[in-house]
Amino acid sequence: MPSTIKPDTPKPAWEELTLAGQPDPSQLDNIKAQLDLVLLALEALAKVGSEAILQAAADLNLTDVVADRVSLWRLRQSSPLRRGQGRKRLDVEEARALVLIICHLAKQQQELIRRAVALLEQLTEQDREPHQAALLGDYLDTFNNTYQERMEDGERTPTEQLTNLALKLLIDLLFYSAPNGTRRLWLALLDRSTRS
């Protein structure tokens, strides 16, 4: 009856988790860029540095993927938005490792993220600028500065756009700090990377 059944093919474990095989390069580029931005937001808000990221990698047994500062830097540098040449390819495994690390860190910083979102809600309700709260002001400044410093188009991007990007990322981070945050982030990455 099932004449059209696909022949049985052995599959390697890890990359076949994607079912569809390796995402194409543009998808991965897209994922890299998003992951880098989410990390940037975390850094800007919680002053999470590479030390904390490496510690998270160690906590999660991901040192194979993120062993040291150099490998971390190269991972981050793989974002197509970044300045500089000689980017390394980010593979699916690395993307997943970064997802786990980001959500681990977001969970650790949940209180701070929550406070920031609460402030944002409060200020918006009062029709006040987010900058008027120190926490948000610092976050936005740091995010904008870092973005402009590190990203290829950083200096050309209007501050207003960066502010909105930062606020969107802040709200996203709140949801990534939830227990099912990894799933949410992963799905969002995939969804966005496949959207034209």
Partner: peptide
Amino acid sequence: NLPAPPSPPAISPLPL
């Protein structure tokens, strides 16, 4: 925990 991505999509521009 992470579900598998969908089938290979059309090449898409960076949303970000």
